[in-house]
Write a protein that binds this DNA or RNA. Structure first.
Length: 308
DNA sequence: TACCAGGTGAACT
DNA sequence: AGTTCACATGGT
């Protein structure tokens, strides 16, 4: 793999990073395992990454940009300490090293328009198809960047559908046109409050509350927001008890119970549930807590997803 | 085959 | 303001 032959490279000592878990946790969808490392790109820059223990080797990108993308400045220990819910504690320990990335705005925004009613593996397929078809290959590599808004705005809905987007093609095309024309500027959201930025995102076709929250979390560093998808809905519902709740109620509940870094907590729960490792206390056991802790049959497991 | 997936938007009560 | 429905695709 020839990534930027004589460009930047090096190695970093990382206190706490699980690169594989981070790149596979349903935030970014384009990283590909290559041998013991990962190839992909950060914005318009082709990148190779490899983690060996506490050492992170990188090629193609400068240290500063890499640290920004991987959010190595997030204090994970403090974030773990910010929520003392017993189920969260267990999930947080199982997700040590999982970091919420700082993704390029347009790329993250467009990719999450692909996400409704799709599994992570399918979002990956669609995003890779868009890159292959509409993205420009990065210098000297077979890796295409995510297509610009202009590139997608010039496509037809049928062309987008041919990448497997289904009904999502219309929203992506409409949003790409608004961004390409300058009518909507993703960069301008960074100075707005979270509420204002969310309203702005929700004005775009194909973006509702949940997708807007994903974008705010994964591209704008709004670590307090809680995207409520089917998984988080189930989990928060089980935290609350059997009473049925609207998505809005679950989101408010999550913001309150999961603490100031609710977005991080949500990501731990999502990742553990999706990989089949999250167990929840039985909803109303007649047994004592001590019994419930050791007797595994009294615990309820969140159903495993259809794996992709 | 039937069911599900990091939902949204429009049309209903 | 809450509920219901259509919307594409691919995997188990």
């Amino acid at each position: 793999m020839s990534i930027s032959p004589r460009s930047k490279s090096g190695a970093l000592e990382i206190p706490e990073l699980d690169l594989a878990m981070t790149l596979n946790s349903g935030q970014a969808f384009h990283w590909t395992a290559m041998g013991e490392g990962w190839t992909g790109c950060i914005g318009e820059t082709a990148v190779f990454l490899r983690q060996k223990g506490d050492k992170l080797e990188f090629r193609g990108i400068g240290e500063k940009d890499l640290c920004h993308y991987l959010a190595l400045d997030h204090d994970l220990e403090a974030i773990r300490a910010s929520c003392d819910h017993p189920v969260v504690r267990e999930a947080s320990l199982g997700c040590r090293g999982l970091r919420i990335l700082r993704q390029p705005r347009w790329e993250c925004l467009a990719t999450f328009i692909l996400s409704p009613m799709k599994q992570v593996a399918h979002i990956r397929q669609m995003s890779l198809a868009l890159r292959a078809r509409f993205g420009t290959p990065l210098s000297g590599t077979p890796i295409p960047a995510f297509p610009s808004a202009s590139a997608l705005a010039e496509a037809t809905e049928q062309e987008l559908r041919s990448c497997g987007l289904g009904f999502r093609a219309k929203g992506l095309l409409g949003t790409a046109r608004l961004v390409a024309s300058g009518e909507f500027d993703p960069e301008a959201l960074s100075t707005l409050s979270t509420e204002e930025a969310r309203d702005a995102l929700c004005s775009l076709p194909g973006i509702g509350r949940k997708v807007a929250n994903c974008i705010l979390l994964f591209a704008y560093g709004r670590l307090e927001v809680v995207p409520v998808d089917v998984w988080i809905g189930r989990i928060l519902g089980s935290f609350r008890g059997r009473r049925k709740a609207t998505p809005a109620e679950l989101e408010r509940y999550g913001e309150r119970v999961l603490g100031p870094y609710a977005g991080y907590v949500q990501q731990w729960l999502f990742h553990r549930a999706r990989t089949g490792l999250l167990e929840l206390p039985a909803k109303k056991s007649t047994k004592s807590k001590a019994t419930a802790r050791t007797a595994t049959p009294s615990r309820r497991r969140i159903p495993r997803p259809v794996t992709g």
